[in-house]
Amino acid sequence: MSLWEYANPVKFMRTSRALLPWFWGLTLVSLAVGLVWGFFLTPEAENFGSTVKIIYVHVPSALMAINAWLMMLVTSLIWLIRRHHVSALAARAAAPIGLTMTVIALITGAIWGEPMWGTYWAWDPRLTSFLILFLFYLGYIALWEAIENPDAAADLTSVLCLVGSVFAILSRYAVNFWNQGLHQGATMSLDKEENIANVYWLPLVITMVAFGLLFVTLVLVRTRTEIRARRIKALIARERMG
């Protein structure tokens, strides 16, 4: 019994079918608890009023936007090294979810930014990094869509994910450097976690866990879809061969 048995599509389909209801349940419960607690049961912040509560969507989605890419990196590596198709398909399944999380983080950030700093957008290092992450996701997904041969697509997107990861880290560093250089003193800090009061902290942790569960659930669902789609493609190809 090794972990790699789950890389077998049959085994994966069977296990994920059994697990999915549990994941859905846990996701919905934790989301409900975290969001209701965060939105309605926490006091309003002294300076910012109720706007601060968007943190319960903003921070978890930003967290998952990065984690989705990390997951794609790991699954891409597994595909390149061990050639498990489920791994490649899981990477493919995670990308649109990561993209969505990135967009949610950007939009909620903009909505939050307006009352906080009086602007929807600033070329703050973090904001810029997320915009770049957004572009990475777009390119990665577009490459998957563009290539006909599924194995070649898995290989090429994995190579892109690997190279992209290095450049993403480099970009993060570069962007930090760049903004300090051009707008000294004008940078706005998003590091609210440190000075966040305890009343806000616990529901935030719960929503972070909830978004993590939501991500895993969606990845499972989408990977199952990708496996089925891949299976159909293989059957059609075989049919054509006669």
């Binding site: 890389a7 077998n8 599509p9 049959v10 389909m13 498990h84 198709h85 599924p150 496996i227 891949r230 299976r231 493609k233 293989a234 190809a237 075989r238 061969m241």
Partner: peptide
Amino acid sequence: KAVPRQMDDFDEAFV
């Protein structure tokens, strides 16, 4: 000419 292999279930190679 390759003969398509018969399979009853999902299989690792998909083909």
